[in-house]
Structure formats: structure tokens, C-alpha cells
Design a protein around this nucleic acid. Structure first.
Length: 497
RNA sequence: CGGGGCGUGGCGCAGUCCGGUUAGCGCACCUGCUUUGGGAGCAGGGGGCCGCAGGUUCGAAUCCUGCCGCCCCGACCA
């Protein structure tokens, strides 16, 4: 059978699409810019969601649900916010269809025009703050720590599976606090939660940083971000946490009485990650043979392949191994397909990213062993059946760590310090054998004079943007790569998704 | 919104330039036999309003007009 997947070096974006399709994660839908998330893809998302949900609850948050529809007038309450989203909003104008007079099907009933048009939420700050106004009266109502799991719609001109679709799934946390400091702490706390999740579960190393004014969320005073580097040298904004100041409190008149009996505006945060993370997961670990999933998020962690095909004596051993694995909380499947040959199954399970494969044949039964293959390195070993569960448990941990370390090494290797604009451009022009067409250049660490004007100029000249000002940045005197003006620290530039 | 590409069994495509029997190929699917430690072989079989609507013609997947949809690249954005 032909190779299922385009090589990364041939066409990176086709490689990505091939993986999404062939690993059964998602399909293009008939609706432009939208996708169908298939059971396998959704199972990964569910694992991510469940883990994040647990982490949110551990940090004191509760879930709620707010409406999909937002009255148009709400959106215009916060000036910066409208500015940011107006261009990509879907609008509901009517509430009824009717049969077309000429019998050609259904048409919008012109009689059913809405008095006030409704916006399909691109994000929920406005409807939530309009609600919080009624919920918050006293300092005793604070902090209010709410998250919602929802779908949102942003009418994008150009879409890519998971990375940017017109409709996507996400969570959005919206919190209200009595003091500025508390809100800032919350913003940073959630950025840290995202970073922990990305690194410990997705095995995707991230850089924690602050966005520049130009890249900031519309309506925020400060946007904190986690930035990851994909295999093609382009950066991915993987999660954001916003300190909203009192902007929405003022726009929606949300005040509380303090302990001192003073009326004050509340301080706000919002933070979110989306199904975009799945795109990041794919592009961080996968290879030319298909998807590679970190064990902690893989819906199926271990697959057992009987060789050459299912047989009672193999099933008997497989049953025992499965029971032992399940005891350790490891998810395992036995491939009982009679029709497919082992070679086909090997390729198929690799394509789908299952972290560990156990092969069991008659020769193995005689030797009381199984063949253990790990997806991340493709290494194979024969391991005694006695104690196999403990071995696999350790192996899954090793794979998880290896994926993280490998990705982290890659990122470290692709952060380039430059001090002149020529060097800056040279890094972006570099070609790489593995990515002859599409190498993004990785992160570039450079001095910047702190102005939006310069930032935009650099973007025009190179297509690279400031991804963030790293939180752990060291102060360093220098000169802006473009203007030569004085600068106190380096920032990270990159071409981004 | 610009530039490019594509719509033909479930999937991937050929055929379209130059109209002409019954629309073909690979994969997948069904049946049987032989196979089986890295994507099996042979034989037989089922499955199509050729994106939609008009037009030209004795005859249209093929030519003409209009429309629709999707993908890729760019501007915008998470």
C-alpha cells in the first residue's frame, strides 16, 4: 500500500493535513471553514479538557454556562473590544424560515427580522460582565471564579484544521476580584496552569511571556501568553491569560462595596485555551509515519497485536496482560481484526499515534516474552511477560519524558540571539533540509525599542512578530535591531501561526 | 477580497485539449482459495443523475453560458 502521509520535507502543511485526516482526528465539513472533529480527535480533546477542568477546580474555579447569542449592543460597550472583534462576527438577523413562494425551498421570512440583532459569541466577556453586574454587590461576593466550556465563532478568512477554524471549542475563564493585585495574581496563576498543562501533559515546552500592546487581547490591560515552537520553526500561541483591569467593570458598571463601605469597580481577568492546542500537539511531536501522542493524553496507550492473527492461546495471554495493565490505570486495546495482517496493523497503529505496541506471536509464547515497540523512537525490544505491566508503565513515563525533552531540545536549538537587523533577516531566510520550503526560522531573541511603530515595521519587512517578552527575561542594555534606539531587554520574535 | 487548484462509485485519481459503443484505474468493500513476525497474492463480485442549472448537437463527463461548493497561497486573526 502507498505511503499514507506526505513527508514533512516535501510539504509541511500537507503533512499536517494528512495526519489530521489519516489519523482520523477530523474532517473538513461541508460548511466553509468548519471541521468535524471525529471520535479519535475528540477523545484526545476530552482527555485535555478533563485534565484542564481538574486543574481549574483545584485552583478554586467552578463551571457555568452563558448564552451563545450576544445582543449587538453589548459588544459595543467596550471600545477596544469591539475594535478587535467586529471584523469577524457572525450575526443573527432573523428568527424564522418560510417556504419560498416559487417552491424552490426555504427562504428567510422577511417578516421575522429581529429587533436587535444577535452576535454569535466570538468570546463571552460582554455577556458575562453584563451578568456579573447583577451577581456582584459586596466584597463578600468576590472573588468570583467562573469558567465555561463552550464553542465560539470567529469568521476567519483563512482557516486551518484545529489551528484556526470558524467555529472552535474552548474554555474561557472569567474572574472578578476586589483588588488589582488579586486579579494580576489570578492572571499569572492561570498562565502557570496552562504552562504546567502544556509541559506535563502535552509534553509541549512553552515560553511564558507578556504580549506587547500590539498583540494584546482587545480590551485587556495586559495579556500573558504561553508560546510554543512547532517543528517547522513557526511559533504557536498556545494559551492566553488576560488582566482586564477595570475596563469591563466600567463598561458594564460592575461595582462592589468594599469593607470600608466604599463603592469600587471590580478587577477582572479572562483566560482561555482551545482546540487549537490539538494542532500544537500534532505539530510538536508527530513524524513522517504519522501522529505521535504523549501517553498522558493518548486515548489508547497500548495496543496488543496478535501475530500473525488472533488465536485462542494468544488471546489468553493478552487477556492477562490487559488485566495487569488496566490495574495500573493504563488504557489498552487488543487488535482482534482477523482480516488485516500484522504489518498493516503496525503501520496503522503508528499512524494513529498509539504510544506502545505489544506484539505477541507463537515464538513469543514459547519464550514467555512479548515484543514491545515504542512509537516515539520506533525502538523494539523483547520483554518477559512476567512483570510486563510494570515495564510498560515505566516505558509510558519514559516516552512522555522523551517527547518533552526532545521538543525542548529542539526549541532551545532554535532560539537565535541577534544584534543586527541583517542577522535578523538572515535567520529568517535560513533554509533547512527538513523544511526546504517552509522553515520559519524559530525564535529570534533581539532588542526592541519598545514602540508599536517599530514592531509593525519589522512585521512588514520580515513577517515576524513579537511573540512575547519572556517573564524570566534578564535586564540587558542593548540597541533596537531596527532603529538602534536604546533597549533594556531582549524580546522573542518569530513567524507565527 | 486577490492569486492558484479541484469537483467523476466510500477515498484517491485518469478521461475533458480533439464530443461518438456499455465511463475507466488504484485503494477500500463482499465471496472463495492460498497466505500470515513490517502495509499479502490470485480469481470472482457489488457499487456512478461525471457539483448544479441552462444551452449547442443526431449524440455532452468532454464544447458554451451562468451558478454553487471546497482546498491551497496571500491580506486579517487565537
Amino acid at each position: 500500500m502507498a505511503k499514507a502521509i506526505t513527508n514533512r520535507s516535501e510539504n509541511y502543511s500537507q503533512w499536517y493535513l494528512d495526519i489530521v485526516k489519516r489519523a482520523g482526528l477530523a474532517d473538513h465539513s461541508k460548511v466553509k471553514g468548519c471541521m468535524v472533529i471525529k471520535p479519535t480527535g475528540f477523545a484526545v480533546w476530552e482527555n485535555m479538557r478533563d485534565q484542564l477542568d481538574r486543574m481549574f477546580k483545584e485552583t478554586g474555579h467552578v463551571n457555568a454556562y452563558f448564552p451563545l447569542f450576544i445582543p449587538k449592543s453589548f459588544l459595543s460597550r467596550e471600545a477596544e473590544h469591539v475594535e478587535g472583534f467586529a471584523k469577524e462576527c457572525a450575526v443573527v438577523t432573523h428568527h424564522r424560515l418560510m417556504n419560498a413562494p416559487d417552491g424552490s425551498g426555504v427562504v428567510v421570512d422577511p417578516e421575522a427580522k429581529l429587533e436587535e440583532e444577535l452576535i454569535i459569541r466570538p468570546t463571552s466577556e460582554t455577556i458575562i460582565w453584563d451578568t456579573y453586574k447583577d451577581w456582584i454587590n459586596s466584597y463578600r461576593d468576590l472573588p468570583l471564579l467562573i469558567n465555561q466550556w463552550a464553542n465560539v465563532v470567529r469568521w476567519e478568512m483563512r482557516t486551518r484544521m484545529f489551528l484556526r477554524t470558524a467555529e472552535f471549542l474552548w474554555q474561557e475563564g472569567h474572574t472578578a476580584h476586589a483588588t488589582r493585585q488579586e486579579a494580576v495574581e489570578e492572571t499569572l496563576r492561570m498562565q502557570q496552569v496552562y504552562a504546567d498543562f502544556a509541559e506535563n501533559y502535552m509534553a509541549m515546552p512553552v515560553i511564558k511571556g507578556i504580549k506587547t500592546a500590539n498583540e494584546r487581547f482587545a480590551g485587556a490591560d495586559e495579556t500573558y501568553t504561553i508560546e510554543a515552537l512547532m517543528q517547522d520553526g513557526k511559533a504557536l500561541q498556545a494559551g492566553t491569560s488576560h488582566f482586564l483591569g477595570q475596563n469591563f467593570a466600567k463598561a458594564f458598571n460592575v461595582k462592589f462595596l468594599s469593607e470600608e463601605n466604599q463603592e469600587e469597580y471590580v478587577w477582572a481577568t479572562s483566560w482561555g485555551v482551545s482546540t487549537r492546542l490539538l494542532g500544537g500537539l500534532i505539530m510538536t511531536h508527530s513524524d513522517d509515519d504519522g501522529l505521535v501522542l504523549p501517553p498522558k493524553l493518548a486515548p489508547t496507550q497500548v495496543v496488543i497485536v496478535p501475530i500473525p492473527k488472533p488465536a485462542p492461546e494468544i488471546a489468553e495471554v493478552a487477556d492477562k496482560i490487559m488485566a495487569a495493565l488496566k490495574d495500573k490505570g493504563i488504557t489498552v486495546k487488543y487488535d482482534r481484526d482477523e482480516k488485516k495482517r500484522p504489518g498493516f496493523k503496525f503501520a496503522e497503529h503508528e499512524l494513529k499515534g498509539i504510544p506502545v505496541r505489544l506484539g505477541i506471536g507463537k515464538r513469543d509464547l514459547e519464550k514467555k516474552q512479548v515484543e514491545v515497540a515504542r512509537r516515539d523512537t520506533k525502538e523494539k525490544n523483547f520483554v518477559p511477560i512476567e512483570g510486563i505491566a510494570a515495564y510498560v508503565e515505566q516505558l509510558l513515563e519514559d516516552i512522555q519524558n522523551n517527547l518533552f525533552n526532545r521538543a525542548k531540545q529542539f526549541r532551545e536549538d532554535h532560539i537565535t540571539k541577534v544584534d543586527t537587523f541583517d542577522e535578523f533577516k538572515a535567520v529568517l531566510k535560513e533554509k533547512k533540509e527538513e523544511h526546504p520550503e517552509s522553515w520559519g526560522g524559530g525564535f529570534i531573541s533581539a532588542h526592541w525599542d519598545g514602540t508599536t511603530e517599530t514592531e509593525i515595521k519589522i512585521k512588514e519587512l520580515t513577517k515576524a512578530t513579537i511573540r512575547c517578552i519572556p517573564l524570566d527575561n534578564e535586564a540587558e542594555e542593548g540597541q533596537c535591531v531596527l532603529t538602534g534606539k536604546p533597549s533594556t531587554q531582549r524580546v522573542l520574535f518569530a513567524k507565527a501561526y
